[in-house]
């Protein structure tokens, strides 16, 4: 389905809820803007991306497409951000995941000395042992024990998150932040956990789904 352009109080609003991937979103946007021509030249645009939350990098890309047609991006509305402002209800962190096109699925454990580098998200069906490394542009989900080093949002995305069935990393990096387990007695927490940046600090919280 195509993206829908409509006018709202003299502003252009583009609804892209129907787009499933970011690439599709960009294609649709290009096609639609070409069809409108320069009618809106110099105007501002708000885009509605539904359940997809765009990363800063992706917003920049959208902005550059718009500016090629002489338009400015005013705001990016998504259902998630609407819900966030509408109510204080706790929503699943996974609904706020920054959106990445590619996801690499690895169906084995990573052992010491093994290293995964991915542009987008990484999902591991297994453990990540000490000495193993994962570098991902997006989010990292580990369906097992995380004992090694992971870097989510490695290309500067501070909204990326790391989640593991057992989160005991030697070191955990998100965007430009680096943390490690506290010194002293090892605390074992017997539940899945999630790490993300809140208020400029890496926060570890219980995973609620």
């Amino acid at each position: 389905m195509a993206a829908v352009i409509k006018s709202k109080e003299g502003k252009m609003e583009i609804n892209m809820q129907s787009c499933n991937t970011f690439a599709e979103m960009k294609d649709q946007l290009n096609a639609q803007l070409k069809s409108v021509g320069d009618f809106w030249l110099g105007g501002t645009v708000s885009i509605d991306t539904g359940y997809q939350v765009l990363s800063n990098k992706q917003l920049e890309e959208i902005q550059s497409i718009l500016s090629r047609h002489g338009l400015n991006l005013q705001s990016n509305n998504s259902i998630v951000s609407k819900e966030l402002t509408d109510s204080d209800n706790e929503i699943s962190p996974f609904e706020q995941l920054p959106f990445y096109e590619d996801t690499m699925l690895i169906c084995k454990s990573l052992r010491s000395g093994q290293r995964i580098v991915a542009e987008g998200n990484v999902v591991i069906l297994g453990d990540v042992n000490p000495g193993a490394e994962i570098i991902a542009g997006g989010n990292i989900i580990i369906m097992g024990s995380l004992r090694g080093m992971v870097h989510a949002g490695a290309y500067g995305d501070d909204t990326a998150l790391v989640s593991a069935y057992r989160l005991n990393p030697t070191q955990l990096r998100i965007g430009s932040h680096i943390t490690r387990s506290p010194d002293g007695e090892l605390i074992m927490i017997e539940c899945p956990e999630l790490a993300r940046i809140r208020g400029g600090k890496v926060c570890i919280e219980k995973l609620k789904i």
């Binding site: 010491s112 000395g113 042992n129 000490p130 000495g131």
Partner: peptide
């Protein structure tokens, strides 16, 4: 154990 893990990875 760390080195053994590395070795198992290389063996695999």
């Amino acid at each position: 154990v760390r080195d053994a893990d590395r070795i198992v990875g290389l063996l695999e």
